[in-house]
């Protein structure tokens, strides 16, 4: 593949990935409103389009045309930069996430991801760890007590839970022996005794999976860890002072982060795109992407389900849970996995 083809293919893949991600963000908002509505015995959006399917478009148009208020007491440069930072980091982390096998179109062979790097997982972790700046700066630059409290809570919470999140992934890394997301998925191909798939969750990483899921909920500031934006005590937390498109950017960042986390969970623990393949060659090419999408959808649904079900933690409970329970569990899981791998080899 020469340089020109490489650039063209990369640009096409980037555009497609961004389009798919933004559409997924818009429709996970719709899904959330719909599912939470049904959980609470309501209908959710129904007016715009069939089943309210055009609601995201209407919301987007509304956000675009609203007046963009900048309160007089804010610290302007950071106030404007914060939502951009948040959405930028949220969208960038999708760049190393693979969604399917290597495909061949014509004589061009390309993996179904924007770029396959050998430290892919570290890149995702690095970018998500930078994501905290958007939230913290929004809270600080708004110059309002609710925002400041929300920002402080968010940065403390994200830094604390990042440790458990990272440690829960080390077990998977030990089993796969690589940081490349594609290599980690490939290590999960095949089955035990012909019927149990060799997913990491069935290779003894089930505790790590639940630690990851819990820490990921805290990282994305979702219920039951949504203290940074707890509406009953902090109005709206760090984005209290934001309106119109800037508010929409925080919203997009939150849902894009949810999707990234869901993608990572399916890649690292549930075998990525592996699943039964059948039918004609074209179907066989599309099926892995479908299986992957199904897993991501399942995680998004669980996110919403949890939001409709669980109450919110108290702040001291949140910190105690993260440091005194989740972190020791993650370390124990790491030690046990390392021992098993060492004995087996």
């Amino acid at each position: 593949m020469n340089l020109t083809t490489f650039i063209i293919v990369s640009v096409i893949k980037t555009v497609i990935a961004l389009f798919v991600l933004l559409t997924a963000v818009a429709y996970s908002v719709w899904l959330e409103r719909k599912v939470v509505g049904h959980i609470q015995n309501r209908w959710g959006p129904t007016r715009v389009g069939p089943f309210g399917l055009l609601q995201p478009l209407a919301d987007g148009a509304k956000f675009l045309f609203k007046e963009d208020l900048i309160p007089p007491h804010v610290y302007k440069p950071l106030y404007i930069a914060a939502p951009m930072l948040a959405v930028m980091f949220a969208l960038t982390s999708i760049s190393v996430i693979p969604i399917g096998n290597v495909v061949t179109i014509g004589n061009i062979k390309t993996p179904l991801q924007i770029t396959d790097v050998n430290i892919g997982l570290l890149i995702v972790l690095g970018i998500t760890s930078l994501g905290v700046y958007g939230v913290a700066l929004a809270g600080w630059s708004s110059n309002s007590k609710y925002s400041l409290l929300g920002g402080l809570r968010a940065s403390a919470q994200m830094v604390s839970y990042e440790i458990s999140l990272g440690l829960s992934l080390v077990g998977v890394l030990i089993l796969a022996g690589s940081f490349s997301l594609r290599a980690i998925v490939d290590a999960q191909a095949g089955t035990f005794w012909g019927f149990i798939p060799r997913w990491n969750i069935f290779q003894g990483q089930i505790i790590a999976f639940f630690i990851y899921l819990t820490a990921a909920y805290a990282e994305t500031n979702r219920v039951p860890f949504d203290l940074p934006e707890a509406e009953t005590e902090l109005v709206a937390g760090y984005h209290t002072e934001y309106s119109a498109m800037k508010f929409a950017m925080f919203f997009m960042a939150e849902y894009a982060n949810m999707i990234t986390v869901a993608c990572l969970a399916s890649l690292l623990f549930l075998g990525g795109w592996h699943g039964p393949l059948f039918g004609p060659p074209l179907l066989q090419a599309i099926l892995p992407v479908f299986w992957f999408g199904l897993r991501v959808f399942m995680f998004l649904f669980i996110y919403i389900w949890v939001r409709g079900t669980l109450p919110r933690f108290r702040y001291d409970q949140l910190m105690a849970f993260g440091w005194k329970f989740l972190l020791p569990m993650a370390i124990a899981n790491l030690v046990i996995t390392a021992l098993i791998v060492a004995i087996r080899s």
Partner: peptide, 18 residues
Amino acid sequence: VIVYAGAIMVLFVFVIML
């Protein structure tokens, strides 16, 4: 990126905010 920019500097920003 993870340790310096993502953890140590967040700590600094946190203290400045606090």
